[in-house]
Design a protein around this nucleic acid. Sequence first.
DNA 1: TCCTTCTTTGAAACGCGTTCTACACCCCTA
DNA 2: TAGGGGTGTAGAACGCGTTTCAAAGAAGGA
Lengths: 201, 201
Amino acid sequence: MTAVPLPGELTLVDDRARRILDAAVRLAETGGFSAVRLRDVAQASGVALGTVYKRFRSKEDLLVGVLSLELVALRERFASEPLQGATRLERLVQCFAALTETLCARPHLGRAVIRSAATGENALAERLQRFHTALMELIVGAIRGRDDGPVSALELERLAVLEDVWFSRLVGWTGGLLTPEMVVEQVARAARLLYGEDGDA
Amino acid sequence: MTAVPLPGELTLVDDRARRILDAAVRLAETGGFSAVRLRDVAQASGVALGTVYKRFRSKEDLLVGVLSLELVALRERFASEPLQGATRLERLVQCFAALTETLCARPHLGRAVIRSAATGENALAERLQRFHTALMELIVGAIRGRDDGPVSALELERLAVLEDVWFSRLVGWTGGLLTPEMVVEQVARAARLLYGEDGDA
DNA sequence: TCCTTCTTTGAAACGCGTTCTACACCCCTA
DNA sequence: TAGGGGTGTAGAACGCGTTTCAAAGAAGGA
């Protein structure tokens, strides 16, 4: 059961850290960012407040940590049911749709996480950097067709742009300006702009 | 002297609001987000704390309000010295470079503002929406060549994508992951991807 | 078994965003 | 000239993120 540390990512061997994260998720699910009071997190996970701070540098750090949980879930999802689209562009859009769905399915939690990620604290940089590369790998793997060639440098650049669009729009979603559907639609539109209408296989 | 309210934007006729904003800018310049203590803002601007909260809904709201000041400055700048680039793509990149420069020139202030904007609080949506449309207009006006045609719907979509990239990268900058030069460079790269290498006039 | 070192704990304390309260002031109308 | 509504002020109070500290365990090594 003890997970072998996933490459380039938060090692969750630490039982306490896991319990703390789980508690944070539960609290965030019901009441969002402000409902995650660290005193409550500590109590709900059965540790002392100091222990929470030993594992996570701040409230934002804790919530960003939730991302690595989501990442594991997404990896499994894509492994068990690969994307169906005929072209790479199609699969790409489906991929972002799935990511968006995952984050927006539990809106309070999603908003809390994105808000934390967007804070731009220096202390979060490391964790976010790790998440970013892991996400990139995940996407690259997910949109790669059965007998596709490798992903070119050009495509990586496009991907980076799309990730930026996705992130910005998610922030728009957390602000109540956009619905999840709009987020996906606008990422799709950006993808079409980048790939040309054809979506070159 | 009393400014006529700028179209679609924070009306700064209110003297107190202006003083509060100025004080916030001064404090943010020296010490960033955390140095903007609302008690200090109130004192420095010669009003009571309650008055600050009468004008601005939160600390973030206040700092986002600074954006409308910057906007005025940018408008003047672009009016007095129009962008020089030969193609629209070139002017576009110059425009984003100027925007980035403006925000990053006073790093503490810039970071504080972006951090506030990225928080994604519902209460900020209105102000940010206004800023967004105003910025869009500003860019459209700035990149429009002397005898250019109007900006097409396609170009507006491209612009929206670039703004997203810009925003995301700025967040990366506030997190210490990117330098201002990298921000500009990556927006430029995205622009080239969107416009094709030519930059179709 | 005792000593050392590291972690965890419980609880208090601090700082600051935010809210609330009581009071003064100003302008307007009767 | 009196009264009243809206705005500003001073200051206290509240909530919660974050830090700090003394004491209690827990794990290893001589």
